[in-house]
Amino acid sequence: MALLRSVLDLIGNTPMVEVSELSPNPQVRIVIKLEGQNPGGSVKDRIALAMVEEAEKDGRLAPGDTLIEPSSGNTGIGLALVARVKGYHLKVVLPSNVSVERRQLLEVWGAEIIESPGSEGSNGAVRMANRIHQEHPEWVYLYQYANRANPTAHYEGTGPEIWRDCPEVTHFVAGLGTSGTLLGVGRFLKERNPDVQVWAVEPPAGEMVDGLRNLDDGYIPPIFTDLRGADLLDRKTMIGPRESIEWTRRLAEAGVFAGISSGAAMAGAARCASSVERGVVVIVAADGGWKYLSTGAWTDDLDVVVERAKRTIYF
């Protein structure tokens, strides 16, 4: 281990570990990339640093500036870490129904929280941030959903790391939040081996988000449309809260303490493993379990936890 100059140098280069003992198919290995090992605790540290450095380079961001960003938590936390180290102010538009630890971590690094209605989910946070940015054009709006530095961070970082550590990958499975991970890693892996299949996992969040007035309140990240995400993905599968929690617990039994969206990705990997004859499925565990201890995900009665998860945003 080298002695590093800045905590930001710890971002990326995360470890991968085999969890094939959890595979429902003995001919399919499952390998998990532990993004919770990043210093801010999630995969979003990568895009936070990339978006900030890109904005610094093109002159949009100068010392002392204020950033505004909508986030269900992890991007906000990553940006809070980067902003604290580099000396920027950060305001995060955060849905009210995220776990308490997400809020606490934002406070640790001095971010200001602007609450958006939980019933509108992340879509509501995006709408509110768009509105605030119009009123305050002097605040720098990196806008993770439309920022090319987001998928590029995965094309240049996460993807090559997976290829370096597990070139035998046949399937890549990850959550579809901003779509940045899937777009960046998916494109990189398919360029190296066109046979690699890319699967997206999505929670049925629409069921929990009942504050949408009509379907035109729906939201597709501009990067997904611009970079032709629909052509890149081979399959998209829905994983409900119960399956997500069950697989989060199974991961813990295998020694991997990961967040609830990682349980969803793992459930997707298991589904993928069952549907193919042989292969190597790589999944991204977006964060560790720490931020979800208050949800009782590992310890409380499963039915109670599932009901709780239905009201919480964990992607």
Binding site: K44, S71, S72, N74, T75, G121, S122, N123, V126, Q144, Y145, G175, L176, G177, T178, G180, P203, P204, A205, G206, E207, V209, L212, L215, D217, G218, Y219, I220, P221, M238, S261, I313, F315
Partner: peptide, 10 residues
């Protein structure tokens, strides 16, 4: 068959 609105995460 499930019909769901498109929602973001992140």
């Amino acid at each position: 068959v499930s019909i769901l609105p498109a929602v973001a995460g992140g």
